[in-house]
Design a protein around this nucleic acid. Sequence first.
DNA 1: ATATATTTGGAACGTTCATTTCAAATCAAT
DNA 2: ATTGATTTGAAATGAACGTTCCAAATATAT
Lengths: 201, 201
Amino acid sequence: MERSFQINMPKVETFDKELVLKRATEVFHDKGFNATSMQDLVDATTLNRSSIYNSFGSKLDLFLECLKSYQDTYVLKVSEILQSADNSLHAIELLFELYLHDTLKDKDDKGCLITNCISEMANQENAIVTFLKSNQKSFIKLLEELVAKGQKESSINLSRTPNEYALYLFSSIQGFRTAGILISNKKDLQTIANTIIQTLI
Amino acid sequence: MERSFQINMPKVETFDKELVLKRATEVFHDKGFNATSMQDLVDATTLNRSSIYNSFGSKLDLFLECLKSYQDTYVLKVSEILQSADNSLHAIELLFELYLHDTLKDKDDKGCLITNCISEMANQENAIVTFLKSNQKSFIKLLEELVAKGQKESSINLSRTPNEYALYLFSSIQGFRTAGILISNKKDLQTIANTIIQTLI
DNA sequence: ATATATTTGGAACGTTCATTTCAAATCAAT
DNA sequence: ATTGATTTGAAATGAACGTTCCAAATATAT
């Protein structure tokens, strides 16, 4: 590694960026973007104001990083599900079990950060719209491939194309996540999930 | 009418309360509760600040009245649908046509005021939660009766109870309204609606 | 015309907002 | 130990926030 022009090294970032993002995400998830103040983020991260601005830019920039971090954790969870399931229908069932589990675990009824973000900001902030549309595209693509595989292996019916069922599932998941904010009854949520899936069988 | 103690009459409210609520609702619908400022509401209603506080109380009180006004217009639209439809399945189809129509008409991709409100405030404001839960209860009850009638007249299948299908429809409608914020493609939205309804047939 | 309850306009309230500033502290390389 | 790029803490910035206040305007019933 060539270092000939680097006379002195700077003081290096001391905080755990992942942990800071996790704490910031919790606040944004609880209160939403607009109701979260910079002071809330300072308190939650125990970082100094200037350190936040230095490391992340603006409040919106930090929020975008939180969205990505939140997305990453779900991508990870979902890919684990896809590997563990023996067929596509079962994978979709496990997917809803994951959302059911996360909904019941969430004592503050916060819902899904990304779905909430669609409601709050999709008609306001361009940078957010770009993220949300890309998230939507890749999620629908994943569902589409899952349905196609399920139809090949005959665990999912052929009444509709993979793209049609992917759109349906995408919309249904958003409804499930939003409805779960006010419905904390496990039986009711399980019924909704089962009925959504029933369509595919 | 007895008036013996009423010596003098006050200056009477001059503005059109319904129109003011309509204008305020438009702003709240566009920006959400937290991103809407009192100045926005003053500008939109052309009322003076003090008149707003005099007539409605606080920003939150005004928002609650807007929610109710928004709810009223949908109750009206839905009851018209229920009367015009010849059977329950058809009524549900018309219901989704209404949401589809409103989604496509909405050039600003605002979604549903009430669904957005669940995302933004259901875990923050008690007065809002009370409204949302009551709205949810009456809506699910309406759907339940609709499904029961449909099953009696054999336009809806008997795979699940009216309550189960009502929960499913309630969740599906919320998903449809949220997904419609980013999906403005009529064909895709129609596919989603059709697939949701297919479950009942 | 006068009296009076109410609305209205506009300024002002104190607080909180996101962001900036800058001196002091920090730490790797010399 | 000294150097210097960078982070950090704390205060300050000006704008915007929701709300209040009060004199002036208004409209009704006398």
